[in-house]
Amino acid sequence: MSAIEVLAPGLLTTVQDLGREGFGPMGVSPSGAADPLALRMGNRLVGNAEGAATLEMTLLGGTFLFREGGIGALTGSDFGANLDGTAVPRWASFEVKPGQTLRLGPTRSGARCYLCVQGGIAVKSFLGSASTHLLSGLGGHEGRALRKGDVLKIGDAREAKEKGTDHNASSTEGAHKSNRLRSVAAKALELLAPRKVLRVTPGPQSDWFPKAAQRIFYSSTYRVSEEANRMGLRLAGPAIREGAHGEMISEGVSLGAIQVAAGGLPILLFVEQQTTGGYAKMANVISADFSSLGQLRPRDEIRFELVNFESARKLFIEQEKLLAAKDLIV
């Protein structure tokens, strides 16, 4: 079996797929890729099913030795990758020869970059997913971020093509000869580019916040603080004091919920989110913009734009159509 050796892990590199849904009653949140669109497209570039396991890198990429070679793709943000000194384009598959080393550096754009390999990263599945849940030390490679010297097995290419999640609707590329190099259509990348103006629907307690408080939230620019990780992103900016009662009866919270704690500053709940919480939610980021959250870095400036539920639904369906399109991968 083929393998990748971690020569340098980067700042925070974890094994991720599309996460594990369905374990809310145990308090287990789905986890999964912070930028699922990048993960899905990367897998398609190398001929895997969309939800195969990949490496998610954060802000600073790692260095990886491919012992037996293979087919890889880098998606998400630009981490200045090179293969034995030759620049590697993003959003395209590339061939790696046995013994070659892939080096990534600090980000030149957003927070996360994905390394997808044909066959997928082979780790023991936990509750049906390869995703690492860092907070609880579960899933992925030993439940933790990668370290120097780790060796990751690469799965069987044929299996990775079939293996699946409910997201593997389109594996049209499977019809092609599997080693043909491919890239994502430029037009699609433009349409799927990460946003800094995040679209939201009203949160379940939005009517707790008086008009003045809502005005502050929707008209202000917020800065992503240093406390931004896979659990959540704390924002800095104008405080929303009115309506932020601080405490309420804990209830289930959804991915992308924007809760306002006693201090009045919003906190965005992310992929390794708590499953329930006791703070009032002003708004919730729409499903179509989840991937944008995964590319936010500390100090990035963001704003919120209110949309209704029907628009949110349409935007998500359009995004899925775009992703399923035959000409996405060329």
Partner: peptide, 8 residues
């Protein structure tokens, strides 16, 4: 209920 984190 269990919530917040796994097993809480």
């Amino acid at each position: 209920f269990l919530g917040f984190t796994p097993g809480f």
